[in-house]
Simulated scan of single mutants.
Amino acid sequence: MSCAIVILNYNDLENTLRLYKELKDFSVLTRIYIVDNASTDSSRQTLEKLQDHKCKLIFAKENKGYGAGNNLGFRAAFSEGMDYCFLANPDTRFQEAYFENVLSVFAKEKQVGLASGRMKDPYGKQATAWPLQSFSKNLLSMGPFSKRIFSSLLFYPKAYLEQKPYVEVDVLHGSSLCISKEAFQKTGGYDEEFFLYEEEKVIGQKLRRAGYKSYLCTICSYLHEDSGSTKKTLKSLVQRQKLRQQSEALYARKYLHGNFLQMLFLRLVQAVILGETLFYSLLLSK
Rank of each mutant, 00 (worst) to 15 (best):
Q262M: 06
S146Y: 05
S79K: 15
F94T: 02
E62I: 00
K24Y: 03
G228D: 07
G113F: 03
Y98Q: 03
F155S: 13
L266C: 11
K213R: 15
G258Q: 09
Q45I: 12
L87N: 12
P144N: 04
E162G: 12
L172K: 10
C178H: 09
M119E: 12
S27A: 15
L29A: 04
Y280Q: 05
F86T: 06
G73I: 08
L207M: 15
T233Q: 13
G174R: 01
A210P: 07
F94K: 03
Y215V: 10
F279K: 08
L250W: 07
D52E: 13
E100P: 06
E248Q: 12
Q51N: 07
K110Q: 02
Q262Y: 06
V102M: 03
G117T: 11
L216V: 07
N259E: 14
S104L: 09
R240D: 05
A210L: 09
S221Y: 13
D91L: 01
L256W: 03
N63I: 01
T46L: 09
M142A: 07
R75L: 11
N259S: 12
L243P: 02
K147W: 00
S39W: 02
L261I: 14
V269A: 15
L153W: 15
Y84Q: 04
D41I: 02
F184R: 13
G189H: 10
Y156S: 06
L72I: 10
N101G: 10
T218I: 10
L234A: 12
R148C: 00
S141V: 01
S116D: 04
A60G: 00
L207V: 14
Q51M: 09
K61D: 12
S180E: 06
S227K: 15
L103D: 09
Q246V: 11
K206Q: 15
D12L: 05
L114V: 14
L264G: 14
F150I: 08
G228I: 09
I273N: 15
Y255D: 02
Y156N: 04
G124A: 06
L103Y: 10
K201Y: 12
K61V: 03
R44K: 11
F150G: 07
E198N: 05
V272A: 08
C178R: 10
K125W: 06
F74D: 09
P165K: 03
F135Q: 01
G211N: 04
L216T: 04
L172G: 10
T187G: 04
G124E: 10
S175L: 02
N70W: 06
Q239N: 08
